[in-house]
Design a protein around this nucleic acid. Sequence first.
DNA 1: TCTGTTGCTGTCACTCTGACACTAAACCCT
DNA 2: AGGGTTTAGTGTCAGAGTGACAGCAACAGA
Lengths: 229, 229
Amino acid sequence: MAYTSEYPPFYVAVDLVILTIRDGAFSVLLVERGGEPFAGRWALPGGFVGIDEDLADAAYRELEEETGVGATSVHLEQLATFGRPDRDPRHRVVSTAYLAVGADLPEVRGGSDASDARWWPVSDAVRQGLAFDHREIVEAGVERVRSKLEYSDLALRFVPRQFTMPELQAVYETVWGVELDPRNFARKVARTERFVQETGEARRGGRGRPARLLEAAGATELMPPMRRE
Amino acid sequence: MAYTSEYPPFYVAVDLVILTIRDGAFSVLLVERGGEPFAGRWALPGGFVGIDEDLADAAYRELEEETGVGATSVHLEQLATFGRPDRDPRHRVVSTAYLAVGADLPEVRGGSDASDARWWPVSDAVRQGLAFDHREIVEAGVERVRSKLEYSDLALRFVPRQFTMPELQAVYETVWGVELDPRNFARKVARTERFVQETGEARRGGRGRPARLLEAAGATELMPPMRRE
DNA sequence: TCTGTTGCTGTCACTCTGACACTAAACCCT
DNA sequence: AGGGTTTAGTGTCAGAGTGACAGCAACAGA
């Protein structure tokens, strides 16, 4: 069966801004483009949405294809939609960007197509020329995360299920690019009821005093919020 | 010229959540649907995006068609994109919702098509059954506004260029549905540098002591933020 | 057991917040 | 003209949150 139309068609895509902290760097997953346009340039993972597929489902599908990580333990939310008529030189593509945040996301080499895929520190990623308008999309995702650390539990998505207070503090310091006072930080986290709770265990094996292991306790808002600057 | 495709096409639309305060009520503009589906039901104004048209341009165009108001003095921002496969029974329509906020938006009767159009208090609007998934979209817009009042200058878009402190306070009270203390409110607004400034004039003619006229002074953030609850 | 390293907590001064009551400036009516 | 009514505008005080700061605690390894 074929469809005809008086007008050229829209293509609808999803792009993923997958963020994690790797080796102490706030990082985004990029794939190297094999073909034109922008061959050899780095771009966000993404793809076209099926005609019967929900946008969020398409985002999950792309996420799993690129990282092998299921929805479990990865936070996924809609970021924004980018639809400038000239953003793709081939067709009219409207792309809804999704933001994914996870802990310990796996190393990736070679995506579904033969092209390369790797984690980039976000500062390096936006400095180089990304394909399409992906620099703008990455910046929107990064700003969303920086902002949501202030008042939400998003920081907990950057650490494993069990984590320590210094690890959680490092999330804020890495994402915001600032240094925080550990005493004030711990006080603020502890003040929010049901934000984190003690597991009773501790992380041993490193140097120095072992840090107590914490886990999320259900609260989704940090109240009062943590403030930048 | 005709285009053919192996697959049924996507349609890309914009929907507008146009919010203002009318007669003391936080209100949204709805249009009555003339034809199927959802004939007779109320819906958000909106329409399809041209194949060479930017999403934001389409939103501006629809805004002007529906309200006669140009971009001037109306704040417009992208809200979110709604793309459930079954959200429109006819086609696959992916719709990007835009949020518009303005002061003194005009009364409207009869849109571009012959159907009716009018302002609804948002509580009445979401209570009745709106067409498509428009209830969800309205709720997203309302929540966005309630949230942005806390930390941005969005409240200034609900009042005319010159306004009084009680009028500005009424924006917060109406949108949040709470009562605020005028002393604490004025202190907080005045504390943020360059948020509002005196014009030297006063609003006369009403009952009681005339209120001094203020205007926006350039700051786009309310710091520290105004807090709900 | 000594040293190095990292985790953890308490205090104090300051600012911000929320609660609260009175004075000021206009209008209206007599 | 004066008194009453209505709305605008301000100051204080107690409690909470914040940022700056130093010292003790618990482990590993030598």
